[in-house]
């Protein structure tokens, strides 16, 4: 767009007749549409059509005996009272309020530490924190699955060697915490990079001014840096909310190691997957997927609204 504006002004400056200008603009419009066409096609075919199609499916019910019938909103009515779906959503809500703050506080702390310029081997440390994000979730989960192993995992062996009773980290009670740990490990680096790059874009004059006013490093971090990167923090929060509710790979892979602790409805996504492929209930799975999308939208919107209101209040004060 900016190049179009630039050439438009250039054309106006050089005093070409308007007719010519329209023609060139039309050419550019055609070119623009041609350029986005491949994306639009893929977007329509791979996202919009399946989405609409799933929407249509969610209004039907298919039975082994009786075939397919239109049932209106019945799948949705069933879902909002389905303890397995609600249990999954509740579990992910718990995941959200416990894991996301821990992960983001770690990410923020590391970003601030690296930005302060007082850390030795900063480049290496930055990379080391980021590397887990580059490890595929599949590999990460298998790796942690081994570490958590109740018979021969390193954690168990160390605790047993100390003569203590090792907890089974893959039992029903602890598996949620174990998954939180995996996800934190995976995504601290990713969030740190977002926050770090936001910190780098703060004009250094602000720090000088704060120092002149007698602020120490902690005070600068609290009163200058964090407020300045609030939009970036909000971004990481929204991403994390979406990520939490859509948790899938980690429980899906740990299922093989802890089948009974994970079950088929650990997270709503896993539940939808099992409904479609084990229960052969594709219609209900589609309804669950749509409801999950709705839950994510609502929670994300509430968080965004709260953040904005707080900003406004602070601006007023």
């Amino acid at each position: 767009m900016s190049s179009a504006v630039a050439s438009k002004t250039a054309a106006a400056a050089s005093g070409h007749p308007p007719r010519r200008r329209n023609e060139s603009r039309r050419n550019q419009t055609v070119a623009a549409y041609a350029l986005i066409l491949p994306f639009v096609i893929v977007f329509l075919a791979m996202l919009v059509v399946p989405l609409v199609y799933s929407g249509v499916l969610s209004f039907f019910r298919t039975q082994i005996v009786g075939g397919t019938v239109f049932v209106g909103l019945s799948n949705y009515v069933q879902a909002v009272t389905d303890p397995l779906f609600l249990g999954g959503v509740g579990r992910m809500g718990l995941f959200l309020v416990i894991q996301v703050p821990i992960m983001l506080i770690f990410a923020l702390f590391f970003a601030l530490a690296l930005d302060s310029g007082r850390v030795r081997a900063a480049k290496f440390i930055r990379l080391a924190i980021f590397v887990p994000y580059a490890v595929p979730a599949v590999v990460a989960t298998l790796l942690w699955g081994y570490i958590y192993g109740s018979n021969f995992g390193p954690i168990t062996q160390v605790i047993s060697a100390l003569g203590l009773q090792a907890p089974n980290l893959l039992s029903s009670n602890l598996v949620l915490g174990s998954i939180m740990n995996i996800v934190t490990w995976e995504f601290v680096g990713y969030n740190m990079i977002i926050l770090f790059s936001a910190l780098r874009s703060i004009p250094t004059e602000l720090y000088d001014a704060a120092q002149v006013d007698g602020a120490g490093q902690w005070r600068i971090a609290w009163s200058v840096k964090i407020p300045a990167i609030r939009p970036a923090i909000l971004l990481t929060v929204i991403f994390s909310i979406i990520g939490s509710f859509q948790l899938f790979s980690e429980p899906q892979l740990l299922y093989n190691l802890a089948p009974n602790a994970i079950g088929t409805a650990f997270s709503p996504n896993l539940y939808a997957y099992n409904l479609a492929f084990i229960n052969q209930n594709i219609n209900y799975a589609a309804a669950i997927a749509f409801l999950l999308g709705l839950v994510i939208m609502i929670v994300s919107y509430i968080v965004q609204l709260t953040a904005q209101r707080r900003e406004r209040e602070q601006g007023a004060a």
Binding site: M46, L47, V49, P50, L51, Y53, S54, L57, A137, F187, Y190, F239, S240, I242, G243, Q246, L247, F248, N269, A272, Y273, A276, I282, A285, A286, A289, L292, G293, I296
Partner: peptide
């Protein structure tokens, strides 16, 4: 968490 953001779409897509 971006990679996860696509998962609903993928799930829906494969269901469809």
């Amino acid at each position: 968490m971006r990679s996860k953001a696509t998962r609903t779409a993928v799930t829906l897509g494969s269901i469809a």
